[in-house]
Amino acid sequence: MLRVMDGFYRGRRVLITGHTGFKGSWMCLLLARAGAKVLGYSLDPPSSPALFGLTRLGVDPPVGLASLHADVLDLPGLTRAVADFDPEVVIHMAAQSLVRPSYTDPAGTFAANVMGTVNLLEACRRNPPAHGQRRAIVIVTSDKCYENREWVHGYRETDRLGGHDPYSASKGCAELAAQSFARSFFDERTYATHGTVVSTVRAGNVIGGGDFATDRLVPDMARAFAKDERVHIRRPQAVRPWQHVLEPVTGYLLLARRMLEEGHRFSGPWNFGPSSRDVRTVGEVAARFAEAWGPGAELDLTRGPDQGPHEAGLLTLDCSKAHALLGWRPRLDLDAALLWCAGWYRIWAEGARSGGGDLRALCLTRIDEFFDE
């Protein structure tokens, strides 16, 4: 993975949709460290507070980062952005990214996640890279795009797509849309004409400093612990693949590099998840995060009746394809990731009370430490 930071991205044009989100903000900081020229295309941050604001990416952008306040559902606007910027790499992250809100607004979820993906691909189809150039398009979906049968083994990229809830189904649909565009307009046989390679990426449960989404385990605990409140864990027995946010975003950039270098050998779907030892129950992760937080962290792991909508009980990924073909492997184990998370949120909480704390510098330090591990 060190190949991501060895100068390859210096000066390269990278378009990121959804750059004001949690993962998008970390991607911007990572690319800033790598010296890329980044155009972010996104609506306002999806939460308040948000990592994008806390790290001043909007008001004091690092060298090479420019932002457009825009919607991926605006096809003419997205088409103009692609035409003007002529990106070499496109990372499509803009999405409605949570399961529970998809029950409240299923139509909006499908619109953002399916038509947003279609519009991004159509904008690239209408504006191929400049003559002689190549373009890598990485569509970020989710591990929930699989037809989840609660198997004990991890899902592989060749397994069936599906989805019980609107969010999961919308991600499966986005996968199918990407496959359709890849086969219809960006085929290997006509690569010399269009110069474009498309891949999709499916990550596990991502954790890290700066996630403030609701109904997500670590952010909910961090907000409560910061106020010395006790946290009730909704589904402590549910099993998920947990990983620090830098693991998948680094994988996406490594994949995009190989797509530019070697073309269609690296097209198609890819899983990016943790090692099997970091596939843990919600209760285990909650207890470890509370321990890493220290004094003031209290949990209620009593399993009472859950009146909420359906959520998967067991979901894991098989990442042997990324291991074998990309040489990608997780660098942080879960304990280290949770220590980093707890440390980040404690600094945020203390800064919120005192008015101090440079969270951008902290994120950049974590990036440097990640590559030194």
Rank of each mutant, 00 (worst) to 15 (best):
L334E: 09
E373C: 12
P219M: 01
V206R: 01
M115E: 12
H323A: 14
R280D: 08
W328S: 09
Q307V: 01
W242A: 02
Y41V: 03
I233F: 03
E369M: 08
A177E: 11
Y41W: 13
W26M: 05
H232L: 03
A36F: 10
R265C: 07
Q133E: 15
T281P: 06
R100E: 14
S102Q: 09
S180M: 12
F110M: 14
G64Q: 07
E88N: 09
E88D: 13
T281F: 09
G53Q: 12
L260D: 12
E262Q: 14
L75A: 11
E369I: 00
G210C: 03
T200F: 05
T55A: 15
R183D: 13
K321E: 12
F371K: 07
Q179P: 00
G268C: 07
S42N: 09
W270N: 06
V89G: 03
D211M: 03
L255Y: 11
L121T: 07
E147P: 00
R10L: 02
G357C: 04
L260M: 10
V99F: 01
W242R: 02
L246A: 11
C173M: 14
H92Q: 15
S180Q: 13
W344V: 01
H310V: 12
T79I: 00
V197W: 02
A182I: 00
G283A: 12
R366Y: 14
A297T: 07
D6S: 15
T79F: 01
F52S: 04
H264A: 09
S267F: 00
L161H: 09
T365M: 05
S168A: 15
R240V: 04
A292E: 08
G204K: 02
P330N: 11
N271T: 05
L73G: 03
H69F: 03
G53L: 10
G268E: 10
S170K: 04
S42L: 05
L255A: 10
G251Q: 11
C173H: 10
Q179V: 04
L364S: 09
R125F: 10
G327W: 02
L315W: 05
E262Y: 13
Q237A: 15
P166H: 07
D211Y: 01
E188K: 13
W242N: 02
P128A: 12
R216A: 09
K37A: 11
R329C: 06
I91A: 10
L334I: 11
P49A: 09
P129M: 06
S320Q: 14
G263L: 08
L65N: 06
A287G: 10
T117C: 13
R202C: 05
L120D: 01
L30R: 02
M5T: 13
A287K: 12
R277E: 15
D84Q: 14
L260T: 12
R125Q: 10
A349S: 15
I367H: 08
D44A: 15
A107G: 03
G162F: 05
D306M: 02
H131E: 15
T55W: 03
L254I: 05
